[in-house]
């Protein structure tokens, strides 16, 4: 199968990879580039745990053709912390007990990161909508919603 060179930025770093025709972004990130933070849940666009940001917008990596991110900026959970300092979302998820098995967590974090960049002070309804494509089996969602609202406050405090 034809292999295409693809260049894009992953969490700020330039990456150049060869991808097979039809390869999806999730495989390229995990197997090709070794970024294991986006998870494989269903592989068919229904669980949301593979969510990454492409040019700031949440996108399901399992349904994204790797070739389509050429020249773009891809962000994953690996890129959330600022050096040793965790992202406010990560702190808030820990302190609000927003994960049990943790399988949904990377997708929730990225969906929430996109929301907070767009809407620094979101309403509860906006939070619910932002994560409505992400399934969580363990938490009952409430702690996740609370964590995202809390993270918005932390983020605004850090910025000011």
């Amino acid at each position: 199968m034809a292999r295409t060179p693809v260049e894009f930025r992953l969490n700020g770093a330039e990456k150049a990879v060869f991808v097979e025709g039809g390869a999806n972004l999730l495989d390229v990130l995990r197997r090709g580039l070794g970024d294991m933070t986006p998870k494989y849940g269903c592989g068919q666009g229904t669980c949301g745990t593979c969510t990454v940001l492409v040019d700031g917008r949440p996108q399901l990596a399992c349904l994204t053709l790797a070739e389509t991110v050429a020249g773009r900026e891809v962000r994953t959970v690996a890129g959330l912390p600022d050096g040793a300092e965790l992202h406010p979302l990560q702190d808030a998820f820990m302190e609000n007990f927003a994960a049990q098995c943790g399988y949904c967590t990377p997708g929730m974090l990225m969906a929430a990161a996109a929301l907070l960049e767009r809407r620094p002070d979101p309403s509860r309804e906006e939070v619910v909508e932002a994560i409505s494509g992400n399934i969580c089996r363990c938490t009952g969602y409430e702690p996740i919603i609370a964590a995202i609202l809390d993270a918005a406050q932390r983020r605004r405090r850090r910025a000011s």
Partner: peptide, 17 residues
């Protein structure tokens, strides 16, 4: 057979507890 058909509540379905 998959999450499209095997339904579970989402974040919009929950209520205070």
């Amino acid at each position: 057979e998959d999450f499209n058909q095997y339904l579970m509540p989402g974040p919009g379905d929950i209520a205070p507890h």
